[in-house]
């Protein structure tokens, strides 16, 4: 059994297990024709990790992230979240996990069209089972402030630039203060300046104690992460934890 030590979770360097997969598989079925995408993924992710999943297109990296983020179902093996089996969760439990524990930043932003920044960021709160309605506005404003869009609160989503849209999406992802934020190619549709802003925002969330898991095929984006998992043809080919390396470097520079 994986360790589920909560008290040791939020301070970064702890090793309390958040996510664990055992021989996780995913296949798509089309008219009984099976197309396997993920094979035997064994993975352990601890709280407050900053992970980049890399790989060429078709390697299954997005699918893996969707499964970890409860947006899709796996078809083989086991997926444990806080030690609980995902396949044993019913629809309402899944909805609750999506509302409270995880959130997503999509490559295509996926904002509500013709809705204001405020409405978009507030959206997850109306489905949140415990945050009272009276706190919604305050939390929403705080989240918008965190991505520097307070001046644009009343803008409609289609009046924003790509970078601004992605920051709205990030604000929406952090408004419920979830444990894990998943980001699917968050800089994929952005110019480099906006991309850097978005990555800085994610970095900040990480330093505030959130677990960040992002998918990218750009090395520069992946370099922000502490741990890089590389996928090829549905299998993990490389899993590098840079945390120790970086820590060592920092200590070295302090000595000098």
């Amino acid at each position: 059994m994986p360790s589920t030590n909560h008290s040791n979770g939020l301070n970064g360097n702890g090793n309390s297990t958040l996510i664990e997969t055992r021989k996780l598989c995913k296949s798509y079925f089309n008219d009984e024709l099976e197309t396997p995408v993920l094979f035997d993924i064994d993975l352990t992710i601890n709280k407050n990790e900053f992970i980049a999943i890399m790989g060429p297109s078709g390697s299954g990296k997005s699918t893996l992230m969707h499964i970890l983020g409860f947006l899709d179902h796996h078809t083989g093996g086991e997926y444990l979240f806080h030690g609980k089996h995902a396949q044993e969760m019913d629809e309402d439990t899944l909805a609750k996990v999506r509302a409270t524990r995880v959130s997503f930043v999509f490559q295509a932003f996926n904002l509500l069209p013709r809705a204001s920044v405020l409405q978009n960021v507030m959206l997850p709160l109306i489905y949140h089972p415990t945050i009272p309605a009276s706190e919604r506005l305050e939390r929403t404003k705080k989240a918008i402030e965190a991505v520097d869009l307070t001046d644009h609160s009343d803008y409609l989503s289609n009046q924003l630039s790509g970078g601004q849209k992605q920051r709205v999406a990030i604000a929406r992802a952090l408004v419920t203060e979830p444990e894990v934020i998943f980001a699917d190619e968050p800089t994929g549709n952005l110019d480099s300046t906006s991309g850097i802003q978005v990555m800085q925002a994610l970095q900040e969330l990480h330093s505030n104690g959130h677990t960040i898991i992002l998918v990218t095929h750009e090395q520069a984006t992946a370099d922000h992460a502490d741990r890089i998992i590389e996928l090829f043809d549905g299998r993990i080919t490389k899993d590098t934890n840079k945390f120790k390396t970086r820590k060592a470097k920092r200590e070295n520079s302090l000595k000098k």
Partner: peptide, 16 residues
């Protein structure tokens, strides 16, 4: 359908 998917992704139940 896309909007329904998004609402589900941020925690909406089927009933909602």
């Amino acid at each position: 359908t896309k909007e329904i998917g998004l609402r589900k992704a941020v925690g909406a139940r089927r009933m909602d």
